[in-house]
Computed example of a mutant assay.
Amino acid sequence: MQLLDGKALSAKIEKTVADEVKILKSKTGSVPGLAVILVGQDPASAAYVSMKKKACDRVGFYSVTHEMPEDISQDAIEKTITMMNDNPNIDGILIQLPLPSQIDTTKILELVNPSKDVDGFHPYNVGRLTTGLEGFVPCTPLGVMELLDEYNIDVKGKNCVVVGASNIVGKPMASLLLNANATVEICHIFTDDLKRHTLNADMIFVGAGVINLIKDDMVKDGAVIIDIGINRADNGKLVGDVDFEKVSKKCSYITPVPGGVGPMTIAMLLSNTLKAAQAHADERE
């Protein structure tokens, strides 16, 4: 069994991004700019935003966080997004999800300019991903594909089971795998007999938010396990959706939690924002 080390690869990607930022700055005088909207006091969301801010600082991005109260109005968020769409110093706009119940999340995501949609959630970019065209891809599944590529793990022709069908992870993960010529099956909360599906899988990608959902008797020998889940156990420890201790004895490759997919998500956010900045710089020339 070999660990897929997202921490090491993300550091490598950060170094590349930082070098590209210096080149962009010397050519255009500007650096990539990322704006984040954070609503409310959710500790997990605040922690993610803090990590993203630190990553931006490390690679030389300009970044700004718009912190808004839990009871913010739809109109107030929309005005902020419109302002950021019009701001030439902002190349990427990130809406930290989830948003409070009074906010129409779909409308908010659709308001972001697709050329600044570095999270890949706008229907324009979702459509381009589904049809195999160039665009912004959600950071977590994109990070998974980078990790597989780093370890020369080819998905072509492999039986891949994606557990979880969210718009943020499961669906785009399935699209990326399909685009890379894998045979893809999506399982979710209404799937009957999950084990029957996972036992046939060459590769399992799980992001369901359920501790120990994937057990060793659900995995065939030599399978590749990508654990996208992140949960806090009763003892306060961060764990994934896979029973790591037992499953790791059967599989060929596995991502640890933490240190696997998590760091790759932030690395891909930096990569997407750099890509947006480079495209915007080309347009201005």
Rank of each mutant, 00 (worst) to 15 (best):
V247M: 02
G262R: 13
A233W: 00
G240A: 01
G262V: 11
V242P: 06
I266E: 14
N231R: 05
V261G: 10
I228A: 15
N235V: 00
T255C: 06
T255Q: 05
L269R: 15
R232G: 01
T255S: 06
K246H: 09
G240D: 00
V257I: 06
K237N: 10
A267N: 10
V261W: 07
S248R: 02
P256F: 13
V242E: 05
F244L: 12
L269W: 07
V239L: 01
V261K: 10
M264A: 13
V261H: 10
G240Y: 01
I254D: 07
P258C: 06
L270D: 05
D241T: 05
D227M: 11
N231K: 06
K250V: 09
G260R: 11
D243T: 00
L238T: 03
N231E: 08
P263A: 14
A267F: 07
T265G: 11
A233E: 01
V239I: 10
N235Q: 00
K250D: 06
K246Y: 02
V239A: 05
P256Y: 14
I254V: 12
D243L: 03
P258K: 04
P263M: 13
A233G: 01
S252D: 11
Y253Q: 14
P258F: 02
P263T: 12
M264T: 13
I266T: 15
T265H: 09
I230M: 15
K249R: 08
G259P: 11
V242N: 03
I228G: 04
G259Y: 04
K237I: 05
L274N: 09
G259M: 08
N272F: 10
N231L: 06
Y253S: 13
